[in-house]
Amino acid sequence: MGNIQAEPIESKRKYGHRYIDALHQILAGQGWMTCPKSMLAGMTAASFRFTVDRRLTAESTSAYNWMAEHFVSADLLGLTTSQDAGFCFTSTFPIYRKQALRDIRRSLDRGMPCILWHDQFVVATGYDDTSEILFLSDGQTAGDIPLPFDQFGRGQSPYWYYQILEDRIALDEIEVYRESLVQAIFKWETHDLMLPEADYACGKAAHDAVIHAFRIGDYDPIGASEVLAYYADSKRDILEYVTALERYWPELHAATTSYRTVAQLWDEAVRFIATTESNEDHSVRIVMTELFQDANVSEGKAVQSLKHLMRETIHNRFDDIGLR
């Protein structure tokens, strides 16, 4: 078909367009979801993912196994998907690009936008075969962002990725919430095997890495500001999500209280670092270290509360709670 264009759905964000922003954009546009983005981030357990490069570089926010995590995120919602990814510098990339463009256009022909990576997660909303252009939405820029077919997978980063939503099945809402909390525990306790531990830290270890970076002063000051702001958003999403789930499990109140403290501490850290002339000053590093030490303790308490609530499910799986 020559020219296909879906109606764009706004998805305003402050710190980069996350996978969950793109997914929410599509689900809301298709009428498949009406809940706030913080609920989607919680249901998919995406808001609980916490990974940092040990020097707090900006890439920390997208350093995770996209294929595994995004498959699980969709699966938790009852969505069937197809996806692929790779590097643009491989000799076979032109073949993969051709297939990717075919898959994306086929999905758009049936009215389903797609998620793809173009230096951030964006939504392909349409295409023009004559001009050989994809139309993208990043949830913030007004109007369409044109991407020539031959530039697919050729951004500033060497990665290409796309995911197509195919169908959905109805799931029990309570079970979706229950599984998301189990996966929250998994993300706190488990390192992403795709990432070398010498360079990256995940979950609780990521908190320890942030504290260590500020304590010794070995971090990227520009990247750190971006990373902290990004994860402060995630901590607020967690708080909103767990608060909403208290209507089903009043026992979550203790976890909610702890997550509220975590969100407040992260917000305080972001505000503090934004008002300093240099976030590398020793006095600044002392304050940041203390804030994140307190946040680490509070989030640990929150996870222990989740483990107590989900203890039967965890026990029934013989403590093997990952879905990947």
Rank of each mutant, 00 (worst) to 15 (best):
V227P: 01
R271P: 00
T256C: 11
E246H: 01
S234N: 07
F272G: 01
D281C: 05
K187S: 09
Y241D: 04
E240L: 12
G223V: 02
I222S: 15
L245K: 04
E277W: 07
I216H: 12
V284K: 02
D237N: 12
V227F: 07
F214R: 09
E280I: 15
I286T: 15
V287I: 15
S258I: 01
S234G: 01
E226L: 15
A209D: 02
D199R: 13
D192K: 08
D267K: 14
E226M: 13
V262D: 05
M194V: 06
I216Y: 11
R260V: 00
L228K: 08
M194P: 00
H191D: 09
I222Q: 15
V287G: 04
C202A: 08
T261K: 11
A254E: 11
Y231I: 05
K187V: 02
R215M: 11
W188R: 11
I216D: 15
I222N: 14
D208M: 06
A254R: 07
V227A: 04
E226P: 00
G203T: 02
A224C: 11
R236Q: 13
E226A: 13
I222R: 14
H207I: 08
T243R: 12
A232P: 00
E268A: 10
W188V: 00
W266L: 06
A224R: 06
D192M: 06
T275R: 15
V270P: 01
E251S: 10
A224M: 09
P250N: 10
Q264T: 04
R247H: 05
L239R: 12
Y230E: 15
L195N: 02
A213R: 01
S258W: 05
V262M: 08
K235N: 01
S283R: 09
I185R: 04
D218F: 11
A263W: 06
I185A: 04
C202P: 02
V262K: 08
I211K: 10
A198Y: 08
T243M: 09
G223S: 04
A184R: 06
A201D: 02
H282F: 13
C202S: 09
H207L: 09
W266T: 06
Y241C: 03
N279S: 13
A206Q: 03
L239W: 10
T190G: 00
Q264P: 00
I273D: 11
L195D: 04
A205R: 09
A229D: 11
I185N: 02
A244V: 06
E277G: 14
E277C: 08
A269E: 03
A269V: 02
